[in-house]
Simulated scan of single mutants.
Amino acid sequence: MKLKYKSNKSKEKSVVAIERIKRRHFEQNWHYHDEHELIYYLRGKGSRVVGDNLSEFEMGDLVLVGAGLPHLWKNSEEVEKDGLEAVVIKFDTSHPAFNLLSMFEFSRIKQLLSESQRGVKFNDKAVAQVNNLLVSISDADVAMQFILLLQILNILAEQTEIELLASPEFSLPANNSEEYRLNRIIDFLSGNYNSPLTLEDISDEAAMTPNSLCRFFKTRTNKTIFQFLNEYRIGKACELLINGDKSISDVCFDTGFNSLTSFNRVFKELKQVTPRDFKRKYQVLNSSIGLQTFSA
């Protein structure tokens, strides 16, 4: 999960860049860019990282990511067979067209864009209200795309029940050297989560003393290293449990935990349910809805 800067700018800077993407998998790197991004999943499921928030996504997932906020959507392995489909809308509010947001009439949208610096997840009610607009926007002409985007943002700005994803204290590295070091730590954790890592292992990889490493990581992510590692491990465990083809014991040890007791405790702390209940819930859900396609 290496943090990368992605530029979407071209010589002729467009107001809105829209893609309806269909492929087996999406980005493999934690990345950020100058544009805001609204991403709507029509098909697929997996893990989502927005800032310091790690959670699962599924069909119907709609999230607004603010400019400069690192993020990653990573599909579960089973989805690669059928592929993913999403509408991705990117827009740079530094474009002169967005000067209208300074008007009082657009104050709610301006507030929503401010909240998006933590990442905003919308509920099913909001998704239902903008579904048709999101599906049709990619086929509209350039002028209409901008109009439709404002309409979508206006509807979303009216929502009173939203989920802010990244913690208020989450911050990016202050310079390239620190960014590289944080990348290296996160890459090491995500690449070795299924091994019994110690603080010494991680500090050796980062070329830092254990105390310096702990301070550095906590300052920049508002999490301890082992909080982050446990969240990553539990995210992977959820993916394996949803797939349903492994026992809870196998999932425990495949995700780097050294005992079922520890696995069950951490899982319940983070998900508010036991691994067994989590697995049962998705088994019931899968049997009831099958492979129905999200209504678009």
Rank of each mutant, 00 (worst) to 15 (best):
K2R: 12
K4E: 13
Y5N: 09
Y5T: 05
S7L: 06
E12Y: 01
E12W: 00
S14W: 00
V15H: 00
I18Y: 00
R20G: 00
R24T: 15
H25E: 12
W30N: 12
H31R: 01
H31L: 06
Y32I: 11
D34R: 01
L38S: 04
Y41L: 15
R43E: 14
R43K: 13
S47N: 14
S47H: 08
S47W: 09
S55N: 13
E56F: 07
L62T: 14
V63K: 01
V65C: 00
P70E: 04
H71D: 00
W73T: 11
S76E: 14
E77H: 15
E78T: 13
E80F: 05
E80P: 05
E80N: 13
F91Q: 02
T93K: 07
M103E: 15
F106V: 04
K110N: 06
E115N: 09
V120L: 02
V120I: 11
F122M: 06
A126N: 04
N132T: 06
L148R: 04
L156G: 06
T160M: 05
F170I: 11
L172R: 10
P173V: 12
P173A: 13
N175H: 13
S177N: 15
Y180P: 00
Y180C: 08
R181W: 01
I185V: 15
G191Q: 11
N194Y: 10
N194T: 10
S195T: 08
S195P: 02
T198L: 06
L199R: 07
E200V: 09
E200K: 07
E200Q: 07
S212C: 03
L213C: 08
T219M: 07
I225N: 09
F226R: 02
R233M: 04
G235D: 13
K236E: 11
L240I: 10
L240Q: 11
S249N: 14
S262N: 13
N264S: 13
R265A: 09
K268D: 13
K279M: 11
R280N: 13
N286V: 14
N286Q: 15
S287T: 10
S288P: 08
S288T: 15
G290N: 12
S295Y: 05
A296V: 09
